[in-house]
């Protein structure tokens, strides 16, 4: 059961560049901040600035409780003005942190093989899932975890250290500088036949193109797959209805679900890709 979200004032403990255009924010929060479920996100904002106006949604990369406070780690990529400003925050800066928000990953007890498929910074929520422990808790039996991590170059395989030694690891880079040369979904396609469709669960997060390739790849299989989506958001709590994704509602009807509240994790089969909108 997800705990109640709150708005907390966080303090930046460390802000470290981890790869070109990627940074790791370590934020100290009060202990009252609820423990996030893997796949959940927070909305962060610099309270000292009136602009940009809206908070930005960022997936939880790590969360720990320590003596007297909690530590939240966010692995971010600079994509626009908001994240660019976050990348330059100094130690000691304050941030408002709203969360934890959304619906995280759910793992059915019958799952024996988990495949974590990440593209770039999409590794963040999957790393949290792996580190948080519920994936491999004692009553999960002989569950195997294999991570497929993809990125442009080896340098951009952010969060790799959170997977190395914790599960089987398969890497793919566009330039071949680490692992398979090509998209991570191609690497997965090569291996896919070796997994038992009934007991395998894929959990994925990455760019839209990766999720769509994954959708095509899995279309003729019966492998379960949950994907974590991202979308521009204003409120993060289901009020503004700005972050919707199109969903198949049966009988050819389309419905819209909110990424912030109904997601960000969805079953891949539910999602309706609209080429005219998604480009």
């Amino acid at each position: 059961m997800a705990e109640k979200p709150s708005v907390a004032i966080g303090q930046v403990m460390e802000n470290r560049s981890v790869a070109p255009g990627h940074f790791l924010l370590t934020i100290q929060l009060p202990l009252s901040f609820a423990t996030p479920i893997p796949g959940q996100f927070v909305m962060i904002r610099d309270p000292e600035r009136g602009e940009p106006l809206l908070p930005r949604p960022i997936s939880v990369y790590d969360f720990q409780r320590e003596e007297g406070h909690a530590i939240l780690n966010l692995l971010c990529r600079v994509v626009g003005r908001g994240t660019s400003l976050f990348s330059r925050l100094n130690r000691g800066s304050t941030l408002t942190v709203l969360g934890p928000l959304g619906r995280g990953f759910t793992i059915d007890p019958d799952v024996r093989q988990v495949l974590l498929v990440a593209g770039g910074v999409g590794a963040a929520p999957l790393a949290f899932l792996l580190q948080e422990g519920s994936l491999l808790k004692p009553d999960s039996g002989k569950r195997k975890v294999t991570a497929y991590l993809g990125a442009g170059t080896s340098e951009l395989l952010t969060g790799l250290d959170r997977f190395q030694g914790f599960c089987d690891l398969r890497a793919a880079t566009d330039d071949g500088s680490c692992g398979y040369c090509g998209p991570v979904t191609e690497l997965l396609a090569i291996d896919l036949g070796g997994y038992d469709a009934k007991s395998t669960l894929i959990l994925a997060c990455g760019p839209a193109a990766m999720i769509r390739s994954l959708d095509l790849l899995l279309r003729d299989t019966r492998i379960r797959c949950q994907v974590s989506l991202e979308e521009r958001m204003a409120c993060g709590v289901g009020a503004c209805q700005g972050c919707v994704v199109a969903i198949k509602e049966g009988e050819g009807r389309i419905g819209y679900r909110m990424v912030c509240k109904d997601g960000p994790v969805f079953d891949i089969g539910e999602i309706l890709w609209n080429p005219s909108v998604d480009g």
Binding site: R232, A234, Q241, C243, V244, Y256, N274, V277
Partner: peptide, 23 residues
């Protein structure tokens, strides 16, 4: 009402645009 297709919102200078369409 199911509202408008996404993208529905965009931040602008000191404001935001929305076209939710009364979902």
């Amino acid at each position: 009402r199911q509202g408008n297709p996404p993208p529905r919102i965009m931040e602008t200078c000191c404001g935001m645009l929305n076209a939710v369409g009364l979902q």
